[in-house]
Amino acid sequence: MKEKTIFILQILTLSVVWIIVLGIIALFVHLVIVAHRLHDALTAAVGISIFAIVVFCIMGSVATYVFIGFQKDKNEGGRL
């Protein structure tokens, strides 16, 4: 396979993580809105959402940090 195809596929693997993270954020925002609309345990919803969204964002960032960090030395010529 060509270098470019490989690179696109690598970005796809990284985006899997971000799809999960964004999905989780969307889900929790939705759940908080529903809880607010129905006046049903809003504090629990907000508390857990804040916690979960932060945790997932950190995980996404760590994966991205590794990905970007690797890209600089991807090709030959980097200092071994």
């Binding site: 490989i6 690598q10 760590v62 940090y65 990905f67 690797f70 890209q71 030395d73 980097g78 200092r79």
Partner: peptide
Amino acid sequence: RVLSWGYRGTERQKHVLERAINIL
């Protein structure tokens, strides 16, 4: 090739990986 994310074992890459593992 895809899953290695372009890792070649350079000093910088090693450092990045080590830091990420430590955070996780």
